[in-house]
């Protein structure tokens, strides 16, 4: 099979129920987006696991580099004051 015959890879996201986010479930090969959706139905929702499917070409996803995770997420590390539990409020004070 020549390289152009190889079907591109799609990442599949499924919304399990109305009101929930789409969640990544896996990937599959398809010639185009329509086939990706049809195959995703057969591969990932045989037991009613979803009410909506997104298919995204894998090459269209940009990801952070795991090797640089430390520096990328470092700015949030010393900012505990962003959490409500950081503050001491006397028990007598209600609804706060």
């Amino acid at each position: 099979m020549s390289a152009s015959q190889n079907w591109p890879l799609y990442e599949i996201f499924i919304r399990a129920r109305g009101g929930l986010d789409h969640k990544h479930v896996g990937s599959l090969h398809a010639v185009d987006a329509r086939m990706a959706l049809e195959h995703a139905r057969d591969v990932y929702t045989r037991r009613q696991e979803g009410v909506s499917i997104w298919a995204v070409r894998s090459t269209d996803i940009h990801a952070s580099d795991p090797g640089e995770s430390d520096s990328l997420f470092e700015p949030a590390r010393d900012k505990v004051y962003r959490h409500p539990t950081f503050y001491d409020i006397p028990d007598a004070v209600k609804t706060l």
Partner: peptide, 10 residues
């Protein structure tokens, strides 16, 4: 989860 296609193919 399957993100092998992220960068250059091959």
């Amino acid at each position: 989860m399957y993100t092998q296609g992220l960068d250059a193919p091959g």
